[in-house]
Design a protein around this nucleic acid. Structure first.
Lengths: 333, 333
DNA sequence: CTGTTAGCGCATTCAG
DNA sequence: CTGAATGCGCTAACAG
């Protein structure tokens, strides 16, 4: 079912059908209506492949995330799609499974599909460099949430310094002194930034320096981290978890060990996903402004699509603290 | 950067470049190597739009889900992508936001993109009929998890009868007699099926018939449902929640009301998402075999793509019960 | 083994 | 206002 079929059935040329259906050029009202009716009756649907080849564009944006099943990325993708729809773009989602090779393959696929632009949450702060850099030089690209080190490319992410600061200061105000960071390792930029932010603020506040625990952003890591903490002596006053998933795992492990939260130990999360509300006790967490994050990312991409020469920008959105039961009432005070 | 550019730079014809790069037809080893090197150096990437137009296919599958930020669909999409990758297909994901109009628009987009086939989780058992039926008659389509009523089309979903049976029988074995269903309403096929399954088994086991509560598959519904239960008198012995999200919401509301789970009331979930492990107490839940579900869905789609005349099939995968703290130890026994 | 050519479906010149 | 013709990038005949 192509323009030809419709043209034949309507007794006009394919050019007229194209014009009538797209309504951009002048066609007689009668013809337009007639063509529309015939097309409708035949169930004609424009072939976006044909149009794409002709037009050189398909109004499609791609996004590569590490794990779509992670609630954080699910929410992020959801918002990105929302903002893109409003601007008339479709979103193609690709999952890298946190694997650099797969990430490279997915980015390549998007390039070959000739998408208009791409968002990427790099899986590795260093090893993702080549694939992301190569893609960025081929088409408009915006890194979201995580970034690759030393890469000249747009980036939109949360202000981790501020977020970690909110968590630490809140815990301190609740009377915690010995605070341990349980977070993602240096593989991701987010892990690095949250670690640096934490160490810096601990120094600035003259808090005791603890031995922190690093791993992956997984529920299971939260659990094993608690095991490690318990094995090495008296528990700290509080845990700053690298994200909600880790926090949830830590809470579960603590309670299984007979410890009370917040009675025996305080804990904070990061992201503000639905997991924070499901935890018991509800998790005090650093909330990312998802919608703003997505909106900024889309705007950055559109800006670069409009003007490829626009200077690269690193944009930070500001998180807020949502206080819940996991840090109240005060433990010792 | 097209075949022409590479051909010119390599001093051969575009046909030779195409052949050399695709390696399907016979090309002299030296030429192939030379062309590959030139293409590499020029950073040539095949244009999938051009190839798609020529080949009439782009090796792409589409999927429309109600909410990608729901962990259940996140996990499902994750698995679908996995199985499709293995067969060389890319996956385009579209979010209907649970809205029928949006769903129609997204399905239309996939048709116009000329994807090879589509998976859809219909947002409404009745109102989704037109859009899904229209799409199904245009290209291979498999309904996953939910389905549209009275539609001749493939479907792969969980055996809700069996799943609800597992939950009810387990609760009964734990001493529960008064069991209430808190689940999705009749808008979705899943809601209908779980309700029917529940009512049927309650009759079969001669359990007291309670007034069940229906709403949406949301955390907030789990909470409000508990409020409604408490308002209407003495709590039942147990709650069978329609999914993990609702169960998590219910648990939170129960505990906030000072009730103990499983001490005062037992509760089961459905799906087996990560939410079940995050709940406190951990949630006893009916686990969907995600990987099998995805594998069956992909197989059903491939079968229909290979032979459009193959008879429609309704396939049910069998869930299992994962017992955890929310139903143990026994409440009264 | 390699070059020439046609045509996938479409939007858009350029004529009329 | 409408039709004929062109070419987007690619692969598959078909020649050579």
């Amino acid at each position: 079912m192509t323009l030809h079929d419709v043209a034949a059935a309507a007794g006009v040329s394919i050019a007229t059908v194209s014009r009538a259906l797209n309504g951009k050029e002048r066609v007689s009202g009668a013809t337009a209506e007639h063509v529309a009716r015939v097309a409708e009756q035949l169930g004609y649907r424009v072939n976006l492949i044909g149009r794409g080849l002709r037009e050189g564009t398909g109004a499609t944006i791609g996004v590569v995330v590490p794990v779509i099943s992670n609630p954080f990325y699910g929410e992020l993708v959801h918002r990105l799609e929302d903002h893109l729809q409003r601007r008339g773009f479709d979103l193609v989602i690709a999952d890298s499974h946190g694997d650099v090779d797969r990430e490279r393959a997915r980015l390549r696929m998007l390039v070959e599909r000739r998408v208009e632009g791409v968002f990427v949450v790099p899986s590795d702060a260093e090893l993702s460099f080549d694939a992301v850099a190569d893609t960025a030089q081929r088409l408009p690209l915006v890194q979201v949430d995580r970034r690759v080190l030393d890469l000249d490319a747009d980036f939109v992410g949360v202000d981790n310094d501020h977020g970690i600061g909110l968590a630490v200061d809140h815990l301190a105000s609740r009377g915690a002194s010995r605070i341990v960071l349980v977070s993602g390792n240096d593989v991701t930029s987010v892990g690095r930034e949250r670690r640096a932010a934490f160490e810096s603020i601990v120094r600035a506040r003259s808090l005791p320096v603890e031995e922190n625990v690093f791993g992956e952003y997984l529920l299971s890591f939260g659990e094993s981290a608690v095991a490690r903490l318990r094995a090495r002596g008296p528990l700290p006053d509080a845990i700053v978890a690298g994200d909600d998933l880790v926090a949830a795992g830590a809470i579960a492990a603590l309670k299984r060990a007979g410890l009370r939260v917040p009675g025996d130990i305080l804990i904070t999360g990061f992201d503000g996903t639905m997991l924070a509300d499901v935890c018991e006790p509800r998790l005090t967490t650093v909330v990312q402004p998802f919608d703003e994050l997505a909106a900024e990312a889309v705007e950055a991409l559109v800006r670069r699509m409009d003007d490829p020469e626009t200077p690269y920008a690193l944009r930070r959105v500001t998180p807020t603290l949502r206080v819940a039961e996991s840090t109240s009432p005060p433990p010792g005070a």
